[in-house]
Design a protein around this nucleic acid. Structure first.
Lengths: 211, 211, 211, 211
DNA sequence: CAATAATCGAGACGGTACGTCGTGTCTTACA
DNA sequence: TGTAAGACACGACGTACCGTCTCGATTATTG
């Protein structure tokens, strides 16, 4: 989460309160739900968490970094159980991800943070580390299961980059779901999920032919 | 663009300066390039444009609506000439859209405006009208051409919703490109474009098999 | 008071509100009475005056300069009517000045401002201009009257510096009264005033001899 | 100095470091010289002295009491040798006191501490005990010498209050010097000292007559 | 051609949040 | 117990933007 997860307990002085960390992140999420990203203020978070502003700024450089950490834990709760087939697994991840984006904590803040990160290298790194990279595991797991089932070809033994295809799939799925629910604003309902999954699995020709 | 698209000359009194309009939008774009969305201020735009803040607020309700108008013209420059095949057309649209997102005016502000619009219905409408809907025509055109060429099946005459598939394709393409370039941060280079196009046209199995 | 008393009405833009000026100085004085110098805050003054902090800082650089101006008007209210003799005039100015220093607005803040001014040249100048120089008139008037009465020798026609003796008298009277009431903390009662006046008029020998 | 002047060795546990006391007071004085009263902070003093803030607050209640103790020693260095005549003794005490006020440690902090003490009874007592009362001895000594020399009348045997005249003289001398050097800002040079002494010894009429 | 009316630049206004700083208390580990 | 280090709650600081307002000065149409 913040800097050192490694158990260097501390060197000198009073150690930072772990309870404060928790209270702050909780307060951030609940404030996001109630007032949304743009009306969220650091002072507000501090007073909700029963914490001084100083304590906030000692841990996070600003609103954006705080929100990234607060929202990241939501993403960590995502799980992808084996649903028995590649199609079912793909539909599962789409639905789960869409459900996450419907939560007001994520909905209001995710795009804002990404926007902010376009001119802030450190923030971009934090977003990637705390959210993006950790969720690729879902795609990886699903793909491995599909390979075991024989639904997808195994990696060529000399293939240098199975990573590229994983990245591509992740960008397509995450990007499409985000765009659908936050930009277009349409519902991620059963029909859309089925259509998107067909597109992913069989391509444009087949997807176009089906109702 | 702003309020009166209809050329009602004016009611009475001094008419609004058209030069001011142009100067403001230009100033907005150049300021976006230099300082990005979050450091962009209305006062700054005003002074860059050699205009009073009053003049600005008389035309736009706030930063978001101003930026939407300032950026919208970039999207109108997108064109999709017939490249002779569905694959070529798809690659063309991906590359064009990615190129647009590389421009700093668009990069910083697009996501920010969308984020802002999650809690502002009027803004959301404006974004959709000025940016989103206008880009769907690219997908529509490409699809019609492919149907004419026989690369995609024609619409079933009783099909109520060819719109659904167009929306889906649009979300997938736009979403994936945005996610790739703004979130993952990887390059939208020839390799990625080819991989993504293959995925779109032929689905996951074929895309996975190729280097 | 603040910068330009000269009637340059204004050049461009909205002129500064004279009502705000008055409200701020009033609020400052009343806050001084209630909470004292050290608990006085700029925010508090602003909200008492129904004014934004910006408006305060646009006119004064900080708490000290604001308080100097707020207190200066009290000094301007001092008057020294002709009491008929040098002794009576001297006693009058001592009593008036002591009464002023008893007022809580002045009592709490005067020494603080002087302390602050030891490391702040601009503030020192402001104190001198707004308070010190303007009150020398009292000494000057009293002295001229005493000369007219024949109680004090007239200025030698070649005397380059009657100013020096006026400054001296002013420092002695003001300094002694301030020291008595703010440092020693003793009362400036009739006895003390008589003793001090005797010392001033007749010197240490005579003052020591009297009860 | 601080709480325990009596050498109770200590009760239990680790005794307080005497070296720390010295280091703190030295650090306070040097910081006063460099940054002045208002920019002096407890943290700064602590780190200059190589001491924890805890140690500081264990010995002094706040900035004001610390500074009183740090500055008090300067006043103890004042001495008034017998210069042979009342006039010479008076000039001596004026010059010595003025010299003290020229030292930046004293200049910045003396008025500040007195200002602070107007609303703080305990601090006022501390200031009087540590600074004011100790300096009255100079006036007392000088007066007794002048009486022995016959320059001043002896105390009437029934006089209840020779104290009153001493207080008066002290307020006049200290007050005038402070006002001259801190408020009016003029130099306490030989001319001013001679003029002031004449005023003190012979009164306004004679002082006015002299160049 | 004057009267009227909306616009213009400038900049002061009441607000709100910012991120920093100082205070005095506290919690560690060590001496 | 005292100590250095430093985190903590609190509250003021001075700054920056926001969106509105009040100025005097233009610049059009209307009467």
């Amino acid at each position: 989460m913040c800097a050192s997860a490694v158990p260097v307990p501390h060197r000198r002085g009073r150690p930072r309160s772990a309870a404060a960390d928790r209270a702050i992140l909780d307060a951030t999420r609940s404030a996001l739900v109630e007032v949304g990203w743009s009306r969220l203020t650091m002072s507000q978070v501090a007073s909700r968490a029963g914490v001084a502003k100083t304590t906030l700024y000692r841990r996070w450089a600003g609103k954006s970094e705080l929100v990234v950490d607060a929202v990241a834990v939501l993403f960590d709760e995502l799980e992808l159980p084996d649903r028995g087939s590649l199609r079912a697994d793909v539909e599962g991840v789409i639905v789960s991800f869409a459900a996450l984006l419907e939560r007001p904590e994520a909905k209001t803040s995710l795009m804002a943070v990404i926007a902010e990160s376009t001119y802030d290298e450190a923030l971009r790194a934090r977003v990637r580390e705390a959210i993006v990279e950790r969720q690729k595991r879902l795609v990886l797991d699903g793909r491995r299961r599909a390979q075991r089932r024989g639904e997808l070809p195994a990696d060529a033994p000399d293939s240098a980059e199975p990573e590229a295809i994983v990245d591509l799939i992740f960008d397509v799925i995450a990007g499409a779901v985000v765009h659908r629910s936050l930009v277009s604003g349409g519902p991620v309902d059963a029909g859309w999920v089925r259509g998107f999954t067909t597109l992913l699995l069989e391509g444009l020709g087949r997807a176009s032919a089906q109702p």
